[in-house]
Design a protein around this nucleic acid. Structure first.
Lengths: 340, 340
DNA sequence: TTGAAAGCGCTAACAT
DNA sequence: ATGTTAGCGCTTTCAA
């Protein structure tokens, strides 16, 4: 290459990576040659030599889920700023896909890993930790004191949701679950039961509809709801999608929201602003979460930070909108009158 | 490494990449050592030596857009199957970000590029073609006979949408645009005008509301619509999001859909199944599109295919649902009566 | 301040 | 069928 245009390969390398260590004149000479030849260093050779790939692996359960997509945006912003690239490991909800990404880590194609999965990916008997790479867990706490957790306060927010419903006068509740094996679901359900207890209710005062983090789960839950004689009036859905599916189905059956049933979602996806009425929900600080996670990972890669402030837990925001309201039930006439 | 456990590095390499060329016994010997030492080849060294990265760059305008996310799923399925990884170039709607990905291509960090942008990314005076890498354009045709196009039939579907509305008796139309600089928007608007003409109408028979591919564009269009004295009754939105925003806003103003105004969207995102009523729209074969594009790119990388069947144009499916219906306007009483 | 030379870990050509 | 060796393109001592 431009080595023909003057100097040694070492000097070119210096000009490009440590411009201070070279004489101005040589610098200009080299830059001119670079410009003319259109030279761009081969990054693979750089990686091999320096043993840094400048890439980070992000493993996510499903990319079409707007929650993960939005987190990824935050991650991308932070990483791009520091010159890192993203290799994306999309499991598409199929755990068998994770083996591939374990190999990726083991073969050192990345400098660090961001996990949106809630667990450590495995391949046979080996797991991703063996790579020795820095790993940061997001979206759900991983119980390993070598792995920082950057998460949202799922449990607290869910508890608060129940208390909010209880405060509106509701006394029979419904819980529409997310994917049962997911840690996130586990946390949210735990928060839900805490809220039930805190509001002075017991295990008999709610029904739980099992499902996944998808629209159709809300529809199934609604079918079951509609078939009940003594329906709950305060419904919490573990994600906005199922809240939306639920509402659509019950309204088709002429059940009014929020007059007959209040529904509160979780996530605060953009879509929740555009339902009729707009969905009451907790908004996750997804973009911020993404940035925070990437930031911790970068620190880990660059200087090996210590376990202080490792565990970040971001708060959520309650969006009080149209799908929740006071109970309009015979037992609550008095309460209703006084609260209006 | 396991070289200590028996043979030469070359043999290990052969066992791992061309198992046929080695004796069964040596093979087993090596594999055993590999297993025991947990050896995984350094992929960077492989890349440098073989000059293949086994990675593909996918450049997308915005990842939180469900259309791109879904295409990416298809791309991922196809690429993963062939052992290729994805490096994701998310522009997040900011063109200045594309320079980074031009560098990525120029520095040969990938074997090929998939463009969901509708144009060739540039950096200063250079563009991505200079990398000499195979490039496939998706989502919008790029006019370069070295670049295959794998797209959907935007124009035809939009024309068909207008004809569908006209068939329902509508005679004043509205067009809610996408991002004006986008080629996709251009194609759709072109199809729209073709449809207008084909149905026997002219440039005065429709209004065009400018915007972007987002929910809020539909809301703005609705504001403008509500302020009109002689409102159109047949609305086409260049994406589902703006159709949904439009419908929400006009319904708030007690305009009935589809009795007072029919709305047809474009894309067929999952959300469109859950609006009330469900949105009439054209569904894009996004997953299939992703696979098809990746497939063409892989062929290009592997054997340099010839320009036959380069240009794939997938059809869309009209989903006739609740937001469109026959005109219920004084001028159309007769038509209405006869068609019911 | 610059150049010469070694070597990152692998694969492929050649030799055995 | 296997080993030896050169070298992918760069960065980084070490020497000049």
């Amino acid at each position: 290459m431009a080595r023909l245009a003057g100097v040694s390969t070492a000097t070119v390398s210096r000009v490009l990576s440590e411009p201070g260590k070279v004489r101005q004149k040589t610098h200009d000479l080299v830059m001119e040659a670079v410009r003319r030849s259109g030279y761009i260093p081969n990054s693979t050779a750089q990686k091999l030599r320096t043993r840094r790939t400048m890439n980070v692996l992000v493993v996510a359960p499903r990319l079409t889920n707007p929650v993960f997509a939005e987190i990824l945006r935050g991650v991308d912003d932070e990483l791009t700023q520091s010159g890192y690239g993203i290799i994306i490991g999309n499991l598409d909800n199929r755990r068998e896909r994770e083996a591939r990404y374990v190999d990726l880590a083991l073969s050192r194609q990345v400098d660090g890993v961001l996990l949106l999965t809630g667990y450590i990916p495995e391949k046979g008997a080996r797991d991703m930790r063996e790579s020795g790479l820095p790993i940061v867990a997001m979206c759900a706490a991983i119980d390993d004191d070598k792995i920082p957790n950057v998460v949202v306060q799922d449990r607290e927010a869910t508890r608060q949701a129940v208390e909010y419903l209880a405060g509106l006068g509701h006394r029979r509740f419904g819980y529409i679950s997310g994917t049962p094996t997911s840690i996130i679901e586990h946390e949210r359900f735990r928060g839900f039961r805490e809220g039930i207890a805190a509001a002075g209710f017991g295990e008999d005062d709610f029904v739980r509809w099992e499902g996944y983090f998808v629209f159709s789960t809300g529809v199934s839950a609604a079918e079951s709801f509609l078939a009940m004689k003594d329906r709950p009036t305060g419904i919490f859905a573990a994600c906005d999608e199922s809240a939306i599916g639920f509402i659509k189905r019950v309204r088709e059956a002429r059940v009014r929201v929020p007059q007959d049933v209040s529904v509160i979602g979780f996530d605060g996806i953009e879509f929740s602003d555009y339902t009729e009425p707009a969905l009451t929900t907790f908004r996750q600080p997804l973009h911020e979460l993404g940035r925070a996670g990437a930031d911790v990972l970068l620190k880990l890669i660059q200087n090996g930070m210590t376990p202080d402030d490792w565990n970040i837990r971001l708060p959520l925001t309650l969006l009080e909108r149209g799908t929740t309201g006071p109970v309009l039930h015979k037992d609550y006439k008095s309460l209703r009158r006084s609260s209006l």
